[in-house]
Amino acid sequence: EPLWIRPDAPSRCTWQLGRPASESPHHHTAPAKSPKILPDILKKIGDTPMVRINKIGKKFGLKCELLAKCEFFNAGGSVKDRISLRMIEDAERDGTLKPGDTIIEPTSGNTGIGLALAAAVRGYRCIIVMPEKMSSEKVDVLRALGAEIVRTPTNARFDSPESHVGVAWRLKNEIPNSHILDQYRNASNPLAHYDTTADEILQQCDGKLDMLVASVGTGGTITGIARKLKEKCPGCRIIGVDPEGSILAEPEELNQTEQTTYEVEGIGYDFIPTVLDRTVVDKWFKSNDEEAFTFARMLIAQEGLLCGGSAGSTVAVAVKAAQELQEGQRCVVILPDSVRNYMTKFLSDRWMLQKGFLKEEDLTEKKPWWWHLRVQELGLSAPLTVLPTITCGHTIEILREKGFDQAPVVDEAGVILGMVTLGNMLSSLLAGKVQPSDQVGKVIYKQFKQIRLTDTLGRLSHILEMDHFALVVHEQIQYHSTGKSSQRQMVFGVVTAIDLLNFVAAQERDQK
Score class of each variant (00 low, 15 high):
Ile238Met: 07
Ile239Cys: 03
Ile239Tyr: 08
Ile239Met: 12
Gly240Ala: 13
Val241Phe: 03
Asp242Asn: 04
Asp242Gln: 02
Pro243Val: 07
Glu244Arg: 07
Glu244Ser: 09
Glu244Gly: 07
Gly245Tyr: 00
Gly245Asn: 04
Ser246Leu: 01
Ser246Val: 00
Ile247His: 07
Leu248Arg: 00
Leu248Cys: 01
Ala249Met: 02
Ala249Asn: 04
Glu250Gly: 08
Glu250Trp: 07
Glu250Asn: 08
Glu252Lys: 15
Glu252Gln: 15
Glu253Gln: 14
Leu254Asn: 06
Leu254Gln: 06
Leu254Pro: 03
Asn255Val: 00
Asn255Glu: 05
Asn255Gln: 05
Gln256Asn: 15
Gln256Asp: 08
Gln256Phe: 11
Thr257Met: 11
Thr257His: 03
Glu258Met: 09
Glu258Phe: 13
Gln259Gly: 10
Gln259Arg: 13
Thr260Tyr: 12
Thr261Ser: 13
Thr261Tyr: 13
Glu263Met: 07
Val264Gln: 04
Glu265Met: 00
Glu265Cys: 00
Gly266Trp: 01
Gly266His: 01
Ile267Trp: 05
Ile267Tyr: 07
Gly268Phe: 00
Gly268Val: 00
Tyr269Asp: 02
Tyr269Gln: 02
Tyr269Cys: 01
Asp270Ser: 04
Asp270Tyr: 02
Ile272His: 05
Pro273Tyr: 00
Pro273Val: 00
Thr274Arg: 06
Val275Ala: 08
Val275Lys: 01
Val275Asn: 05
Leu276Thr: 02
Leu276Met: 08
Leu276Tyr: 07
Asp277Trp: 06
Arg278Trp: 05
Val280His: 06
Val280Lys: 10
Val280Tyr: 11
Val281His: 03
Lys283Ile: 07
Lys283Cys: 15
Phe285Gln: 05
Lys286Asp: 01
Ser287Ile: 07
Asp289Lys: 00
Ala292Val: 07
Ala292Pro: 08
Ala292Ile: 04
Phe293His: 02
Phe293Asp: 01
Thr294Met: 05
Phe295Glu: 12
Ala296Glu: 05
Arg297Phe: 00
Arg297Glu: 02
Met298Gln: 10
Met298Leu: 15
Met298Tyr: 11
Met298Cys: 11
Met298Phe: 07
Ile300Asn: 01
Ile300Lys: 04
Ala301Pro: 04
Gln302Leu: 09
Gln302Thr: 10
Gly304Ser: 00
Leu305Lys: 02
Cys307Arg: 04
Cys307Ser: 11
Cys307Ala: 08
Cys307Lys: 06
Gly308Pro: 01
Ser310Cys: 01
Ala311Asn: 03
Gly312Met: 01
Gly312Lys: 00
Ser313Tyr: 01
Ser313Ile: 03
Thr314Asn: 06
Thr314Gly: 15
Val315His: 05
Ala316Tyr: 14
Ala316Gln: 13
Val317Leu: 11
Ala318Ile: 01
Ala318Asn: 01
Lys320Glu: 12
Lys320Val: 05
Ala321Asn: 03
Ala322Phe: 01
Ala322Gly: 06
Gln323Met: 11
Gln323Lys: 12
Gln323Val: 10
Gln323His: 14
Glu324Asp: 14
Glu324Leu: 03
Glu324Gln: 14
Leu325Lys: 05
Gln326Tyr: 12
Glu327Met: 04
Glu327Pro: 10
Gly328Lys: 05
Gln329Thr: 09
Arg330Gln: 12
Arg330Thr: 11
Arg330Phe: 05
Cys331Asn: 01
Val332Leu: 14
Val333Cys: 12
Ile334Val: 12
Ile334His: 03
Ile334Ser: 03
Leu335Tyr: 06
Leu335Asp: 02
Leu335Cys: 09
Pro336Asn: 01
Asp337Pro: 01
Asp337Ser: 02
Val339Met: 08
Val339Ile: 05
Arg340His: 02
Tyr342Met: 04
Tyr342Asn: 04
Met343Gln: 01
Met343Arg: 07
Thr344Val: 03
Thr344Glu: 07
Lys345Met: 03
Lys345Asp: 01
Lys345Glu: 06
Phe346Asp: 05
Leu347Ala: 07
Ser348His: 11
Ser348Asp: 13
Asp349Ile: 05
Arg350Ile: 10
Arg350Gln: 14
Lys355Ser: 07
Lys355Gln: 09
Lys355His: 13
Phe357Asp: 02
Lys359Gly: 03
Lys359Phe: 08
Glu360Pro: 04
Glu360Thr: 08
Glu360His: 06
Glu361Asn: 11
Glu361Lys: 12
Leu363Ser: 10
Leu363Pro: 15
Leu363Met: 12
Leu363Thr: 12
Leu363Ile: 12
Thr364Glu: 11
Thr364His: 11
Thr364Ala: 05
Thr364Lys: 12
Glu365Ile: 13
Lys366Ile: 13
Lys367Tyr: 09
Pro368Tyr: 13
Pro368Lys: 09
Pro368Ile: 07
Trp369Gly: 09
Trp370Ser: 04
Trp370Cys: 15
Trp371Arg: 09
Trp371Lys: 10
Trp371Pro: 09
Trp371Met: 09
His372Leu: 15
Leu373Tyr: 15
Leu373Met: 08
Val375Arg: 07
Val375Lys: 08
Val375His: 08
Glu377His: 06
Glu377Pro: 09
Leu380Gly: 11
Ser381Cys: 13
Ser381Met: 13
Ser381Ile: 13
Ala382Met: 11
Pro383Gly: 06
Pro383Asp: 06
Pro383Glu: 07
Leu384Gln: 08
Leu387Gln: 13
Leu387Val: 09
Pro388Asp: 04
Thr389Pro: 15
Ile390Ala: 04
Ile390Pro: 07
Ile390Val: 12
Thr391Tyr: 02
Thr391Leu: 09
His394Leu: 06
Thr395Glu: 04
Ile396Gly: 11
Glu397Ser: 06
Ile398Asp: 09
Ile398Glu: 15
Ile398Ala: 12
Leu399Pro: 03
Arg400Gln: 13
Arg400Tyr: 14
Glu401Ser: 10
Lys402Met: 15
Lys402His: 13
Phe404Leu: 15
Asp405Leu: 03
Asp405Val: 04
Gln406Ile: 12
Ala407Val: 15
Ala407Arg: 03
Pro408Met: 00
Val410Ile: 13
Val410Gly: 15
Asp411Lys: 13
Glu412Thr: 13
Ala413Ile: 11
Ala413Cys: 14
Val415Gln: 13
Val415Leu: 15
Val415Glu: 15
Ile416Trp: 01
Ile416Gln: 04
Gly418Tyr: 07
Met419Ser: 14
Thr421Val: 14
Thr421Trp: 05
Gly423Pro: 07
Asn424Asp: 15
Met425Asp: 08
Met425Gln: 12
Leu426Asn: 08
Leu426Glu: 05
Ser427Arg: 10
Ser427Trp: 09
Ser428His: 03
Ser428Ile: 14
Leu429Arg: 12
Leu429Trp: 09
Ala431Tyr: 09
Lys433Phe: 15
Lys433Val: 12
Lys433Leu: 14
Pro436Ile: 15
Pro436Leu: 15
Ser437Cys: 14
Ser437Ala: 15
Ser437Glu: 15
Ser437Lys: 13
Gln439Glu: 14
Gly441Arg: 12
Lys442Leu: 15
Lys442Tyr: 13
Tyr445Leu: 13
Tyr445Phe: 12
Phe448His: 10
Phe448Thr: 04
Lys449Arg: 13
Lys449Thr: 03
Lys449Trp: 14
Gln450Glu: 14
Gln450Leu: 12
Gln450Tyr: 05
Arg452Asn: 15
Asp455Glu: 12
Asp455Leu: 09
Asp455Phe: 06
Leu457Asn: 04
Leu457Arg: 00
Leu457Thr: 04
Leu457Lys: 04
Gly458Leu: 06
Gly458Val: 12
Leu460Met: 12
Ser461Asn: 13
His462Asp: 11
His462Ala: 14
His462Met: 13
His462Glu: 14
Ile463Met: 15
Leu464Trp: 09
Glu465Gln: 14
Glu465Trp: 00
Ala470Ile: 04
Leu471Lys: 06
Leu471Ala: 07
Val473Glu: 13
Glu475Met: 09
Glu475Trp: 12
Glu475Leu: 14
Gln476Met: 11
Tyr479Ala: 15
Tyr479Trp: 03
Tyr479Lys: 12
His480Gly: 05
His480Ile: 11
His480Lys: 11
Ser485Val: 06
Ser486Trp: 10
Ser486Asn: 12
Gln487Pro: 07
Arg488Lys: 14
Gln489Asn: 13
Gln489Ile: 11
Met490Pro: 14
Met490Ser: 14
Val491Lys: 09
Val491Thr: 04
Phe492Tyr: 14
Val494Phe: 13
Val494Met: 14
Val494Cys: 11
Val495Ser: 14
Ala497Thr: 14
Ile498Tyr: 11
Leu501Ile: 11
Leu501Asn: 05
Asn502Lys: 15
Val504Trp: 10
Val504His: 11
Val504Ile: 06
Ala506Phe: 15
Ala506Trp: 09
Gln507His: 12
Asp510Phe: 15
Asp510Tyr: 12
Asp510Val: 15
Gln511Cys: 12
Lys512Ser: 13
Lys512Trp: 04
Lys512Ile: 05
